[in-house]
């Protein structure tokens, strides 16, 4: 799922500085799972903001509301009766949700409250690891299920480079070398042939805005 991290409070305060009536909208999707922008985080953030406002002697009203998902416009319909009462909307959704919100309410300024960081996995409670950069051309088949685009700091397709350092990346002793791991996994599976041949340059699929249409729906949208 998408993983996100809340922006620093100072940045949020700056974004809303010019607004009086504010609606904070949470998202029940990925950001809720990764504890960044679900209903609980909406309540927590609003409480923090209220503390700051009383400390800074600033008058604002901040309400909270959480929808099931912000990346589908039909879940935003329920905001219709209330949205126009606010000067601005602050959204705890990922970048996709924020944009969907801004598109749904084009007359109201919408500000993001989280930085969308990655597509990742839950490593532990509150700890998430990036696993995919949505390059659009998955190579996991020949890399032992370890993504070189995401996990190699240089995104190499013919790694490892000369900077491998006791199994770690040259950038840090805390970042495992993706290609070291690829090598070891393929070796254990007796599949080193997969990386012995030279991989040609990647045909990048993520250099233009992408809209996908699943095959069963092609006729519906392309007719």
């Amino acid at each position: 799922m998408v993983k996100a991290k809340r922006k620093p409070i100072e940045e949020i305060k700056e974004a809303i500085a010019g607004y009086k009536n504010i609606l904070n909208v949470g998202c029940g999707g990925c950001v809720s799972v990764c504890l960044a922008g679900g209903q609980r985080e909406v309540n927590e953030l609003n409480a923090v903001l209220k503390l700051h406002m009383s400390k800074d002697n600033v008058q604002k009203s901040i309400d909270g509301y959480t929808v099931e998902r912000q990346c589908n416009v039909k879940f935003l319909d329920e905001l219709d009766p209330m949205a126009t009462k606010y000067d601005c909307i602050i959204s705890m959704a990922c970048g996709a949700g924020v944009q969907n919100m801004a598109e749904r309410f084009p007359g109201i300024p919408v500000f993001p409250l989280v930085n969308t960081v990655s597509i990742g996995i839950d490593r532990n409670l509150g700890m998430y690891e990036e696993k995919c950069r949505a390059c659009g051309h998955c190579v996991l088949g020949y890399t032992g299920g370890i993504c070189p685009v995401t996990r190699c700091s240089k995104g190499l397709f013919n790694g490892p480079c000369g900077g491998t350092n006791n199994g770690n990346c040259e950038i840090s002793n805390e970042v495992p070398c993706a290609w070291y791991d690829i090598y070891n996994r393929l070796k254990a599976q007796n599949r080193l042939d997969d990386i012995l041949k030279v991989q040609p340059p990647m045909e990048w699929q993520n250099q233009t805005p992408r809209t996908i249409i699943q095959e069963p729906y092609e006729n519906r949208y392309r007719a």
Partner: peptide, 13 residues
Amino acid sequence: GVFDIDSIQLVAT
């Protein structure tokens, strides 16, 4: 970082 192609691919290019 660009890393559009890697060093081995650059050799081949």
